[in-house]
């Protein structure tokens, strides 16, 4: 009994999952989304094997400049979201909220440019049926845009309910959207 009393308390063994920053479920979501978009990109390049010339010709109709600008918009938005978390952890609530507002506004800029891009295609009578390239283009960029919409809503919500844990989860979702885009952009817009 005395031996038990004098024995130092052992800390429970740390699982490798405990090393992950933030919420475990958010990482499950991030990995799931990467798998879904990753499979989409592999399928895109797989179907391209059947008609590389047609894919190259279809890609010429994309607006590479606006997509590159959108990449800059999204990585800057991610930077603001990451800074918001740092600021909130330093109890700078007001500044953190402004950063979240900036991040979500840039999300809206991304969406506006995306709508312009789709409008440009509509003017050329390009639909998802025009070519398999555009089927994947609309599917992948449209699904990503849906995540951007969800991300903007989440950023507004965590700016309102601004405890650090909420901001961390919201910012992680936003970084996942960012991460998917930096893989989507080169494959769809740049690899001719």
């Amino acid at each position: 009994m005395q031996e038990l009393a004098t024995k130092p308390m052992q800390e429970p063994a740390k699982s490798v999952l405990d090393e992950l920053p933030g919420e475990l479920l958010m990482w499950v979501l991030i990995i799931s989304e990467l798998l879904v978009f990753g499979a989409g990109l592999l399928a895109f390049l797989g179907v391209r094997l059947t008609d590389p010339a047609g894919f190259a010709e279809a890609q010429e109709h994309l607006n590479r400049t606006s997509a590159a600008f959108n990449t800059i918009v999204l990585v800057t938005s991610g930077f603001l979201a990451a800074r918001a978390l740092h600021l909130r952890e330093q109890s700078k609530r007001r500044s953190a909220r402004w950063h979240l507002a900036g991040a979500s506004s840039l999300g809206l800029v991304f969406l506006a440019i995306k709508v312009f891009e789709y409008w440009e295609k509509a003017q050329l009578s390009i639909t998802s049926e025009s070519h398999p390239f555009f089927t994947f283009y609309y599917l992948l960029t449209g699904f990503h845009a849906a995540h951007v919409i969800a991300g903007v809503v989440i950023l507004v919500l965590v700016a309102w309910k601004d405890d650090p844990q909420n901001i961390e989860v919201g910012a992680s979702f936003w970084h996942m959207v960012d991460l998917v885009w930096v893989l989507l952009f080169p494959v769809i817009y740049l690899l001719a």
Binding site: E19, L20, P21, G22, V75, G78, A82, H175, L179, V182
Partner: peptide
């Protein structure tokens, strides 16, 4: 993005 935005630099493995 993974390392700095999502903070994986804190979990090297």
């Amino acid at each position: 993005i993974l390392s700095r935005y999502l903070g994986l630099w804190k979990a090297p493995s």
